[in-house]
Lab assay of single mutants.
Amino acid sequence: TTFEIRVGDLRITLHNADEEEIRWAEEALRRGIHADEILRTLEERRR
């Protein structure tokens, strides 16, 4: 599944994310964390 998060002009697309990952990514985007860093962190958490 694919889920797109939008916060203002910012956007990130997550693939195969669970609800916790989606909530975490949305909050991180709101705090101004760059999408590349969010994706990198999620990848590390999945390992």
Rank of each mutant, 00 (worst) to 15 (best):
H15P: 03
E27R: 13
L42W: 03
I33P: 00
D18L: 09
A25K: 00
D9N: 11
R6K: 13
D9T: 12
N16S: 05
A35H: 06
R30H: 07
A17L: 06
A25L: 07
D36F: 14
L29D: 01
I38L: 08
A35W: 03
E43V: 11
R46H: 08
E19S: 10
R11C: 13
T41G: 09
T2I: 15
E37N: 08
I12K: 02
D9S: 12
R45L: 07
R6F: 14
E27K: 11
A35I: 06
D18V: 11
W24R: 01
R6D: 08
E21D: 09
E21Y: 03
R40I: 09
T13K: 06
E4A: 01
R11M: 14
R6Y: 12
I38A: 02
I33N: 04
H34R: 09
R47M: 14
D36G: 08
R45V: 07
I5Q: 02
E44C: 15
R47V: 14
R47F: 14
L29M: 10
D18P: 03
H15I: 10
L29T: 02
T1K: 13
G8T: 01
F3G: 13
T13V: 12
D36S: 10
I5E: 07
A17N: 02
E43S: 14
H15Q: 05
D36Q: 08
I22V: 07
I33V: 13
E4S: 01
T41R: 13
E21L: 05
L14Q: 00
R40D: 07
W24Q: 02
V7N: 03
W24D: 01
E44H: 15
L29Q: 01
H34C: 09
E19K: 10
T1Y: 13
A28L: 08
A35S: 09
E26S: 13
L29R: 01
T2L: 08
D9I: 13
L39S: 04
A28F: 08
L39N: 04
E37A: 07
R45A: 09
R46D: 03
T41Q: 11
H15S: 07
E44Y: 14
I12Y: 13
L29H: 02
A28I: 03
I12V: 13
L10H: 11
D18W: 06
L39I: 12
A28S: 11
D36V: 09
E20T: 10
I38D: 00
L14K: 00
E20N: 10
F3P: 07
G8R: 02
T41V: 12
T2H: 15
E21I: 05
N16E: 05
I12R: 01
I33Y: 11
I12L: 14
D18R: 11
E27G: 10
N16Q: 05
N16T: 03
H34F: 11
D18A: 08
R47I: 13
E20M: 08
A28K: 06
F3A: 15
R30A: 06
E4Q: 02
I22R: 06
E43Y: 14
E4Y: 04
E4I: 06
E21T: 08
W24K: 01
W24E: 02
L42A: 01
I33E: 08
E44T: 12
H34M: 12
R31M: 14
A35G: 09
I38E: 00
L29N: 02
N16F: 08
G8D: 03
G32P: 00
R47H: 13
E43I: 11
E26N: 05
L10N: 07
A17E: 02
E27L: 14
R23T: 09
F3W: 04
V7F: 12
A17D: 02
E43P: 03
T1E: 15
T2C: 15
G8W: 02
L39R: 05
R47P: 05
D9L: 06
E19I: 11
T13N: 03
I12Q: 01
T2D: 15
I22A: 14
N16Y: 05
D36W: 14
E26P: 00
I5P: 05
D36H: 09
R30S: 10
W24F: 12
E27H: 13
R47L: 15
G8Y: 04
E21K: 01
R11S: 15
R47N: 12
E44W: 13
R46T: 03
I22C: 06
E43L: 14
L42V: 09
H15G: 03
R40E: 10
V7M: 04
L10A: 11
G8Q: 02
E21W: 05
L29V: 06
E19T: 08
E44D: 09
G8V: 02
A35E: 08
R31K: 09
R6A: 09
L10W: 07
T1G: 15
T2P: 09
E27D: 10
A25S: 05
N16P: 02
H34N: 13
E19W: 12
A28H: 05
I38V: 09
A25M: 04
T13W: 03
E4N: 01
R31Q: 08
N16R: 05
I33K: 09
T41F: 11
H34G: 13
I33W: 14
G32T: 01
G32M: 05
G8K: 03
E26R: 14
H15V: 08
A35N: 12
H15M: 09
R47G: 10
W24A: 02
F3L: 14
R23L: 10
T41D: 06
H34Q: 12
G8A: 03
R45F: 10
E4D: 05
R6P: 03
I12E: 01
G8H: 02
T13C: 05
W24I: 07
E4W: 03
R11A: 11
E43W: 13
E20S: 13
L14M: 04
E20C: 11
A35T: 10
E26K: 14
E27M: 14
I22Q: 04
L39D: 02
R45M: 12
E27V: 10
R40W: 11
E37K: 09
R31W: 12
I5N: 01
F3D: 14
E20Y: 11
W24H: 02
T1N: 14
R6S: 13
H15D: 04
E27N: 13
L39G: 03
H15N: 08
G32S: 03
R30I: 10
L39E: 05
R11I: 15
R45W: 14
A35K: 06
I12N: 01
G8I: 02
I33Q: 06
E43D: 11
V7C: 10
T1H: 13
H15K: 06
R47W: 11
L14C: 04
H34W: 09
L42Y: 03
L14W: 03
R45T: 06
H34Y: 12
L39A: 03
E27T: 13
T2F: 13
R30N: 05
N16M: 07
I38T: 01
H15T: 12
L10P: 00
